[in-house]
Amino acid sequence: MEPKREGISVAALHHQQPAFRGLDAGHMACPGCGQALGARLVTEAIGPDAIIANATGCLEVFTSMWPRSSWRVPWIHSLFENAPAVASGIEAALKAQGRQTKVVVMGGDGGTFDIGLQSLSGMLERNHNVLYVCFDNEAYMNTGVQRSSSTPHAAMTTTSPRGETRMGKRHLKKDLLAIIGAHRIPYAATATVAYPSDLRAKVRRGIEIEGAAFLLVHSPCPLGWGHDGADSIEVARLAVQTGFFPIVEMERGVVAGVMKIREVRPVADYLRLQDRFQHLFEDSREAREELQHLQELADHNIEVYGLRADEPHPRDSEGADTVRRGGMRWS
């Protein structure tokens, strides 16, 4: 253990961090949890004057084991599928009271792509001044890794296992962003915990905009994806650099910007780090075909979103996470 530094109280330091952190330590997320990190980064960008409505899921459970809570912002969890409606009510109340407090929804992919989609659609259609943040870890992790409509094709989950007749999930990942885009809300984007500056900028943009905004944050799950907790950022970064998870922005449903990929990596680099894709590296025709299928899906993303960089840019997949001595990059 490092020697204790004289005159420094770690407990006091939690209350003296130079950036506001709406989610603090002592939560019960697994080591290396992408969602825990993502949620904290989002709270940093929104600041203290905000109310969070949290859908049921890992984030809700691991941050709110009574009598303790990890939140520093007012936070409410009601149910799995109603967080957008609860947020709508909060926003309506704040409007009625003449308050400027920001309203943010946080949910997982289960709560967003599946069970809460109707409620979300309603919130977007009514264009509430709410930022919806979906932490996409591509399965129902809280209940023990069952497939969701966000689970990538061919990924293994407990309800899409690899067996004699199956190579993991049969269906494709739902194109949620297209659905969100079809609501023609002012702003929608994808982001990832691997590029915190990009994530924060998008949160700030989503918050500043008057009206509904949506952010899909790719959040690795060491337990559900089967990778080392230390590799969470690495895995998330590779998802971007392979084209597997495109980073895009939409204004009124139209793609307005993308994070270009400077050096496109083969999807195998991304898949290999994760147990949920290990069966794709077996020596069989099915494995080879499915592996290639995922490569083609990534290539398709690159093509339709125009992800390939023509020339280096400071905000492309290589430049966007460049750090500077003194931490200026993240401030």
Binding site: P48, D49, A50, I51, N54, E60, V61, T63, S64, M65, W66, P67, S69, W71, R72, V73, P74, W75, I76, H77, S78, I90, T101
Partner: peptide
């Protein structure tokens, strides 16, 4: 729900 008195509502 109030940022001046941030409680967590709806815990486990």
């Amino acid at each position: 729900l109030d940022p001046m008195h941030p409680r967590s509502i709806g815990t486990v």
